[in-house]
Write a protein that binds this DNA or RNA. Structure first.
Lengths: 207, 207
DNA sequence: CGGAACTATGACAGTTGTATGACAACGCAC
DNA sequence: GTGCGTTGTCATACAACTGTCATAGTTCCG
C-alpha cells in the first residue's frame, strides 16, 4: 500500500469486505484492489457485488495461484488477477493498462487525505467530512503546500517562498492566513487538531 | 491454439510479427495474442504498432516471467500478460474479461452526463433535463472542453489554447463566453451549480 | 512572579478578480 | 445589400481577497 503511494496513487485501505463495499458506495475509488483472503464475505461474492454497483476496474491480489480460483474471480467480474508476491512495478503497470482501457476519457483526480479532510488539488476543492469547504486561493495553496509534506514542520520562511514567491517578507503574514484557514477547517480554531503550530518552528498538517 | 478452438474461439495463426500485423490490418480480429519470442520484429515493437493502428485488446503470452518484460509489454500497449505454461481455462476467462471491458468503453464514450445535463460531442447536441439547448459553436466547444475533464479546474489560459487555439490572448474573453454559456445551461446564472468559478484558478464543470 | 518572545485574532483600506451590459465588426444566408 | 446571429473588446460595478497593523493572548524561562 505504501509502495503504491510511492508510485503516485492515493490509497484507501479497508480491513474487511463489508468496509470495502460500503466505502466504495460512499465514495467510489477509480480502481479496487481485492484480496481474496479477506475475512467476512466470500471474496468472489465481494467482487460480484462491486461489479453489480458499478463498472470500476477490479484487480484481485491473492496468494492462491490455482487456475480454478483465477477463472472464478474473472468470471465474477474481476479485470485482472495477480498472484502474490506481487511486484509493485507490475501491479502499477497493470493498473495503468486497465485505466487506459476503461477510463481513457476521464481524467484522474488525485486526493490527499488527512482523516476526514480531503484535498483535491486539480479540482481546486477541499472537503471536510464530505462537505465542500470554500477556501481562497492563498488558503488553498497554503493547505496544499502543507499537505504535500504530511506531518512535517514547515517554517514561515519556507511557506512564504512556496506559497507567496516572496524571498523576504513579513512572517506574520503566514500567521494571519493560517488563522483564516483554521477558521474553515478546524472544528474549534482555538484547539487546532489538524493544522498545528510548532512553537518556534512553524506549522504542520497532522496526518 | 487447438485448445482455444475447443473453447469456442475462431483462431487465425501467423508465424511472424510481420504476418500478424498485415493480417490484422487486412482483416481485424477482435483480440490479438502475441508471443514475445516471435522471429522478426521485436515483440514490444509489434505491440506498439498494433496499438497504433487500433485499440484491439492485446494479450501477451510469453515464457519469460521477468517483471521488467511484463511492465515493458504493458507499457507498450498490451492489456494482459500471461506466463507460459498457460492454462487454457485461465486464458479463456481473461479474454472474456477483456472483451467485457472493451464493450463497456464503447457505450461509455458517446455521452457525457453531468446530472441532468447531457452532452453528445459527436452529435453536437446538448440536452438539459431532456430538452435540447441551442449553443453556438464556441459555447459548445467550451462546454466539451470542460466536460472532458469533469470536476477539474481549467485555467483561462488552458481554455484559450484548447477552444480558441490562442497561445496568447485576453483572458477576459473566456469570462464572457462562460457567462453566455451560463445563461443557457444554468437555472439561475447568478448562482452557478454546474459551471462554477474557482476564484484565482479558473472554471470547472461540476461532476 | 514578571518580562520577553512568540502566536492569535479582529478591523480596515487598498487591491484584485469576476460578472455583465453595450457595441462594433464579422460572416453568412437569402 | 439587408438582416440576423455570433464574436471579441471594452467599461463599469460589484464582491471577494489581501496585507498591514494594533491589540490581546500564550508559553517559556530565569
Amino acid at each position: 500500500m505504501l509502495a503504491l503511494e510511492d508510485e503516485g496513487y492515493t490509497v484507501r485501505g479497508v480491513s474487511s469486505a463489508e468496509d470495502g463495499l460500503l466505502a466504495q458506495r460512499a465514495e467510489p475509488a477509480d480502481t479496487v484492489l481485492v484480496d481474496l483472503m479477506l475475512p467476512g464475505v466470500d471474496g468472489f461474492e465481494c467482487i460480484r457485488q462491486l461489479r453489480r454497483d458499478d463498472d470500476v476496474p477490479i484487480v484481485v491480489v491473492s496468494a492462491r495461484d490455482d487456475t480454478h480460483d483465477i477463472v472464478a474471480a474473472l468470471e465474477a467480474g474481476a479485470d485482472d488477477y495477480l498472484v502474490k508476491p506481487v511486484a509493485v512495478k507490475e501491479l502499477s503497470a497493470r493498473l495503468r493498462a486497465l485505466r487506459r482501457r476503461g477510463r481513457a476519457v476521464l481524467t484522474a483526480v488525485s486526493t490527499l487525505v488527512f482523516g476526514d479532510l480531503e484535498i483535491l488539488p486539480e479540482a481546486g476543492e477541499v472537503r471536510l467530512a464530505g462537505t465542500p469547504v470554500a477556501l481562497t486561493r492563498t488558503e488553498f495553496r497554503l493547505l496544499c503546500e502543507l499537505a504535500e509534506h504530511p506531518g512535517l514542520v514547515l517554517t514561515r520562511q519556507q511557506l512564504l517562498q512556496r506559497v507567496w514567491d516572496y524571498d523576504v517578507g513579513d512572517e506574520r503574514l503566514v500567521d494571519v492566513h493560517v488563522g483564516r484557514l483554521r477558521q474553515k477547517i478546524e472544528d474549534d480554531s482555538r484547539t487546532p487538531r489538524r493544522l498545528v503550530t510548532v512553537r518556534g518552528m512553524g506549522y504542520k498538517l497532522q496526518r
